[in-house]
Amino acid sequence: MLEKTGVPTKEQVMNEFPDISRINEGPVVVIECFKEIPCNPCTIACKFDAIHIGEDINKRPEVTEDNCIGCSVCLSKCPGLAIMLVDGSKSEEYVHMTIPYEFYPLPEEGDIVEGLDREGEFLEKVKVLKVTNPKSYDRTPLVKLEVSRKYMYDFRNIRLEEM
């Protein structure tokens, strides 16, 4: 399916998520890099030894969840924009999800935007908690959102409402 449509199956996605207990402890990366390609900036970006590819740069990245502190540096470094951050430590009802977002206009803190799934379908309205765009991110801003827990495995994108 992924090879034909660009949409991974729910199972493929779930496999990349850490246990819910780890998610509830604090922020952790989820990497959706399903195909072996010659690429390794994520490992170079990670200063905590949480992402491993090894000698052969064609291998898929492996995450050591316990080493990940959720610094989010790798999110803006991945050329495939395949990394996001999930944090379930903040509330029972919501998870905080941080995604790279390279479109103008950027949303602003406090905005309500449309939360989308991996096919670009509307899931629910989500609140923008933070937008970070320092020079070191090199024009790949990160947007942190408040997403209902039930959509944790579906949410992957946002759309700003028409102005």
């Binding site: 992924l2 090879e3 034909k4 449509t5 660009g6 949409v7 991974p8 959706e32 890099c33 399903f34 195909k35 390609i37 991945c78 050329p79 495939g80 924009l81 395949a82 989308l116 799934d117 991996r118 096919e119 670009g120 379908e121 992957r156 994108n157 759309r159």
Partner: peptide, 18 residues
């Protein structure tokens, strides 16, 4: 899809069908 799947997914989640 011939290209890298990360690129495909990136556009697919914008709602563009492939």
């Amino acid at each position: 899809i011939g290209g890298y799947l990360v690129h495909a997914s990136k556009i697919r989640r914008m709602g563009v069908p492939i």
